[in-house]
Simulated assay, not measured.
Amino acid sequence: MTLSILDLAPIVSGGTAGDALRNTLDLARRAEEYGYRRYWLAEHHFAPGVASSAPAVLIALVAAATSTIRVGSGAVQLGHQTPLSVVEQFGIVDALHPGRIDLGIGRSGQRRAELATDPVAEKQAARVVDGLLIPPPFDWSALARQPRLARQIAALQQPGARTPDFADQIDDVLALLDGTHEARAVPGEGADLRVWILGSSGGQSAQVAGERGLPFAANYHVSPSSVLEAVEAYRKAFKPSEALGEPYVIVSADAVVAESRARARELAKGYDLWVRSIRTGAGAIPYPTAAEADAHVWTDADRDLVKDRLDTRFVGPPAEVAEGLRVLRRVTGADELLITTITHDHEDRARSYELLAEAWNRS
């Protein structure tokens, strides 16, 4: 199947991190049963509502709880770790689950630094490209300049540490894996890992993925305004490699599926409040109940913070959401889609994935 899952291990209002992690293991087992191709875990820090802060650890747990589905990171924040430590971590997991592990890598801190000094110069109008909504870009510069964010980034690194250029880091990862680096990664060297690059724009991540002949994952669910730019830049830069003979693209999307449109919309409540917490710099809050979401008093500024994410989410009955995702796949030329679903109730989330898989397989 050409659908996969991205899981943040969300902690819901009234729940605990332990609950979230047990739900992740349960959902991974079900995803394997439903036929999803791969199960990726995000890396988030300083978020009261997200338990996926150490993807290598969680990937090991998920891989042990399943047997066939590919498991990976979406994505390791390489700006906060060395290539050697990442390859060793994933090498350990691969040694126990060979041929099933994806090492997805993102630029993290380097990208944040760019956003702080690169405000959106002009508010572009929303446009529809062959049926796909491309919203105006979100201006991250004010959030990226917050002192709190700088302190958080500092807490992830040793004092005085300097993050090398992303391209150099990726080259080190690849060299450590194939044994051509002067350092030896044990476990890690010779590991049967598939390396992915994740990106939100047509910048360095897309360029590096293309030039190294690696598969690329583009964010429609986080940065929908730049998804077409990202996949175009990747394909333009692509050079065949031993790993990949032609470009391979996965595109992410947020979705909630239920038996009826009304039920899906009810389950989707809380998402706007959750996104607002991220974009105000507070960090993702525990995922709200529908009642908590309804109680929030929204300002125009609040709505502007979350509008692009709400407008590009796929919410509805199975056939309707599947059709929307087919449009996303066609317009981006994606080989695969990476679906993120968050609801307050775990059973509703699992059922959403089940309904989507059934509808996708019927098409």
Rank of each mutant, 00 (worst) to 15 (best):
L228Q: 00
P224G: 15
V251A: 01
S223D: 15
P215G: 05
A262Q: 13
V231L: 02
R265P: 02
A233M: 05
A262E: 15
S260D: 04
L267T: 01
A233V: 01
S226E: 14
A258T: 10
K239E: 05
L228K: 04
A262G: 09
K236C: 03
Y248W: 07
G213S: 09
E266I: 09
Y220T: 12
V256D: 02
L244F: 05
R263Q: 02
S223M: 14
K236R: 15
N219S: 15
K236Y: 04
Y234M: 08
S241M: 06
K239A: 01
A264T: 10
P247S: 01
H221Y: 10
K269E: 15
F216C: 07
P215N: 05
S252K: 00
K239P: 03
V231P: 09
V222R: 15
S225M: 14
S252M: 01
T280C: 11
S252D: 14
Y248K: 07
P240C: 10
S225Q: 13
L214I: 13
P240A: 11
I250Q: 04
F216D: 05
R265Q: 04
T280V: 14
W274V: 02
A230S: 07
A233N: 01
F216Y: 03
D272F: 12
E266F: 14
R279V: 07
T280F: 00
S241D: 15
L228Y: 10
A258E: 05
S241T: 13
A258V: 09
P240L: 09
G270T: 08
A230G: 07
P224N: 14
S226T: 15
P215L: 02
A268P: 06
A255E: 12
G213C: 08
H221D: 10
